[in-house]
Nucleic acid binder design. Structure first.
Lengths: 115, 115
DNA sequence: CCAATACGCAACCAAATTGTTGCCTATTGC
DNA sequence: GCAATAGGCAACAATTTGGTTGCGTATTGG
């Protein structure tokens, strides 16, 4: 195998999650949705300086990567957080931190062994 | 206070970190740097389908948000990972997951109390 | 019942992103 | 010493992003 394909796919997937979180508007939408309740688009637009349509686009981006889900309720579209993708990348970042410590310890051991 | 200002600043900061991670090329650069060692730009460009200049731009983006640091060594520019910003957003995501659980428990308690 | 509310769709725009190429300078090792 | 190596800078192009406005449809509550 020229390149670990599963790892590449994971990288692509995680990048889409990070990318979805990489916008202040979307990140504050996520924050608003932490309460576990469902919120309509209009509700999520209040206290915001941008238009409902812009918020709608951001919500679609979050929905496309699975960070939120939506259901129609009458004339409203209700959005709820789904933390699974967030947990996924959270664990990934935790692993990086662990790997980092391991790498530093290995370097330290190497240096001490050869001093 | 119309809006929690510190929270907004944090949101902006975290969004820049997530945005830096929100690109497959940059995410794989981070992966290559987990070994704790320093890597030159040319080294980081091998096994990549894009040019050295493109890699340089990505490294600058990572450097601007503090995920990597660079030092000049002769004719080389050596890059090293700095996991602090990653730990910062990792903890943030962990908090979201916790808040989520708390919110769901509160909802459950509310429903049970009023059934 | 009908005005107000909630939202979708599409066109459009400016700015940012991602990549390229060309060229130049500095460093190194044979 | 000089060719090869490492990388910086700038200009350019294509695509994506983040936002707007205009307008249409569906639902609702008084």
């Amino acid at each position: 195998m020229k390149n670990n394909n599963a790892a590449v796919i994971d990288t692509e997937y995680r990048a889409t999650i990070f990318s979805a979180l990489g916008d202040p508007t979307r990140l504050s939408l996520v924050t608003k949705l932490i309460d576990g309740k469902s919120h309509s688009i209009t509700t999520l637009t209040t206290d915001t300086h941008i238009t409902r349509q812009a918020i709608t686009k951001h919500l679609r981006i979050l929905e496309n990567v699975g960070i939120v889900t939506s259901i129609k309720a009458g004339r409203e579209s209700l959005y709820v957080l789904d933390p699974k993708p967030l947990e996924s990348v959270q664990k990934y970042l935790a692993i990086i931190a662990n790997e980092w410590d391991r790498s530093l310890n290995n370097l330290k051991a190497f240096v001490e062994k050869n001093h």
